[in-house]
Amino acid sequence: MALSKSDVEKIAHLARLEINDADIPLYANNLTNILSFVEQMSAVDTTGVEPMAHPLAASQRLRPDIVTETNQRELFQSIAPQVEAGLYLVPKVIE
């Protein structure tokens, strides 16, 4: 299955990735190759096979409801691109 320019643009938008127009044909080509390679999977009959999401058949462990974390805002915000009054700042969000 060959991906078109608009397919690539759609996927890139969903993934919030800016791709230069000039690079789109190359991405389209690479992604098409990868998808055709992956396509081999469809030749196998997997009827009735239970999908495997984890390598180990274990179940979720539960944590006690006890506060273990302290305020580290200063440390965490020292590596933030833009903060003010303890808030992370982003361009205006329109609702």
């Binding site: 506060v67 974390e69 805002r73 915000q77 808030l87 992370y88």
Partner: peptide, 21 residues
């Protein structure tokens, strides 16, 4: 008392981002 996936407190009204671990 704590978040669903972390040990940070859920108390209402804390100063911004002081309960975000």
């Amino acid at each position: 008392r704590t978040k669903i996936f972390s040990g940070a407190a859920t108390a209402y009204g804390a100063a911004p981002n002081t309960q975000a671990c």
